[in-house]
Design a protein around this nucleic acid. Structure first.
Length: 150
DNA sequence: GCCAACGTTGGC
DNA sequence: GCCAACGTTGGC
């Protein structure tokens, strides 16, 4: 195999996208996720969120947001398996992906901080507060990592 | 507990 | 195809 091919493939693999998933900590906290290490992200029943799940690639980075009680971005995960039929769906065309927990952030980033940060003013988390799976721009991702102490 | 945002459903 | 009614999510 020519070296050029391997190089191209490796470049494609490193071109990750960034996402954010939302979950109520009372339902499935990041701590629980870390204990299980890998989890199937099932139960999404919203077309926009589903389409985002389907756009995820293996190796993409996923921020983990706790809604309700915490209201903070608390950890980082990665996509380990791309979209496949959601086994918890009894009807309809729904998908899920497999996510692996990477680490909890040293300093969780509170929603209140996100709202006051100029670099994050257009983040989908704020613009579309009800969406549970959403894209994050590279600039936003870098900014969030900085604010979480990573 | 309230309310705003927004997605879905069903009548017309 | 429009729109009112209703249900859900999630911040406050």
């Amino acid at each position: 195999m020519p070296a050029r091919t391997a190089k191209t493939e490796s470049a494609a693999c490193t071109a990750v996208s960034f996402w954010l998933v939302k979950q109520e900590p009372a339902t499935y906290s990041f701590a629980q996720f870390q204990k299980e290490k890998v989890t199937a992200w099932t139960g999404v029943r919203n077309f926009q969120a589903r389409n985002n799940l389907r756009a995820m690639k293996k190796g993409d980075a996923v921020l983990y947001y706790h809604s309700n009680d915490d209201r903070a971005i608390v950890g980082l995960a990665e996509v380990v398996k791309t979209a496949y039929p959601d086994p918890t769906a009894t009807e309809g065309d729904w998908s899920c992906v497999d996510l692996k927990a990477i680490r909890a952030f040293a300093k969780p980033l509170a929603l209140t901080q996100i709202k006051t940060d100029a670099a994050l003013k257009n983040i989908v988390l704020i613009r579309q507060s009800r969406l549970s799976v959403m894209p994050v721009t590279p600039a936003e991702f870098v900014r969030i990592l900085k604010l979480t102490g990573d």
